[in-house]
Design a protein around this nucleic acid. Structure first.
Lengths: 226, 226
DNA sequence: GTCTATAACTAGATAGAC
DNA sequence: GTCTATCTAGTTATAGAC
């Protein structure tokens, strides 16, 4: 029954690490809530740190595999040296991530992932980064093809901005209630969020590269910005 | 010398909390690095938790005061019932935050703030939220005036997206190196980042409200999205 | 206000019976 | 594989001398 014990330990630890942080979660909390013995974590994973690693790998790898599948499909459908449709590209990048964050068990992990960006542990950081490296480069090249007129320095920053909104939306709940407290339309539909996000990000990515005039006249929504 | 001791404790604790997290930072680490006695934290602040509270208040209040000063100036310069220029409004919201994150001592605090969004402590969360409530409502109304054609439900989401990019850019360094590793143009100029961000966010905010066509033909950067 | 000393407790890890 | 018992080392907080 070793495999099942590993499973339940990872499930419980994922939720606890997300809620209380790595340092704030004790092996005693984990093993108690998982209904296993205190020594089980060290037996199955070797240490508390190795348990953390296993948790990251379990979620991130499938997410990035889906991103690459979608990108492959896009590139197969459009010519090889040709432009790619921007909105579809954005969606290929963000949809697997957002769906992970709304999945049954995955929503705890997203908080954990957001937390990991702020941790200083070099070990953890290196491991998380390694899990993203291949996907990042493939998508960077694809976006460069979708926005051929944009200087690469500008594209670089805007892709960061895209990752930023995405990361924020993935962490979800708590953070998103800060700015406009009571106006939330209770919509748990991930597809609706994806549509809104694709619109926002695509228009941000496709903005002209030149600096913006700060004192512009009022404009209507949908009107192109100069 | 009580005031100076409080000061140095807060400075050191801010950096340590940001780097190692609240639970990951011990009073021993703080007092050792601050060159004060172990008992000093409990004497001056009452507890570890109260020290944390004091650290938040010290940074957030001035930042939001500056946001409101800028908004007041904008509203004074433009008519009361009239539209506000979108880019200037975005800048009024993000510039004080980004400048705080690049200030001498402030850059540690930003990581700490980002971390707090992921913490589950209801006490801390309530306190942080209270510090933002007034600013949030004032800006929400201002953005509604700047984008009068945008349905309020759509505006709500896009303001969240804005906060998301901002929060991400404030946490800075670590997170931003994930997607495009070696292409970073080493630019520590906050004004340049602000300009780029204002462009990205303004175009995202001003996008048409209708859903996006996913399979669109390629476009040039700067061309309006349909 | 600042210090030392210590109380009261919890942490991760492991040895060894079953 | 799973258990109990325990080790070592860390934590917050406080009492009381100066």
């Amino acid at each position: 029954m070793g495999n099942k014990t590993k499973q339940v330990i990872m499930d419980v630890a994922e939720a606890l690490f997300a809620t209380h942080g790595y340092e704030g979660t004790s092996l005693r909390m984990i093993t108690q809530q998982a209904g296993v013995n205190l020594a089980a974590v060290n037996y199955h994973f070797g240490s508390k740190a190795a348990l953390m690693e296993a948790i990251y790998e379990r979620r991130i790898r499938p997410m990035n595999e889906e991103r690459l599948r979608r990108l492959d499909a896009l590139e197969a459908h459009h010519g090889d040296g040709q432009h790619l449709p921007l909105e579809a590209l954005v969606e290929a990048f963000i949809a697997p991530a957002l769906r992970l964050s709304r999945e049954g068990r995955g929503n705890h992990f997203i908080t954990l992932l957001g937390r990991s960006y702020l941790e200083s542990s070099p070990t953890l950081h290196a491991q998380v980064r390694r899990l993203f490296d291949g996907v990042a480069e493939r998508f960077r090249q694809a976006f460069a093809r979708a926005l051929p007129e944009l200087p690469s320095g500008e594209l670089y920053w805007r892709l960061h901005f895209m990752v930023g909104v995405l990361a924020y939306c993935m962490t979800g709940t708590e953070m998103m209630r800060l700015i406009a407290s009571s106006r939330m339309e209770a919509s748990d539909d991930p597809d609706e969020l994806i549509t809104r996000l694709v619109t926002f990000i695509s228009h941000g990515l496709a903005a002209p590269a030149s600096p913006v005039v700060v004192d512009a006249p009022p404009r209507r929504a949908g009107e192109a910005l100069r």
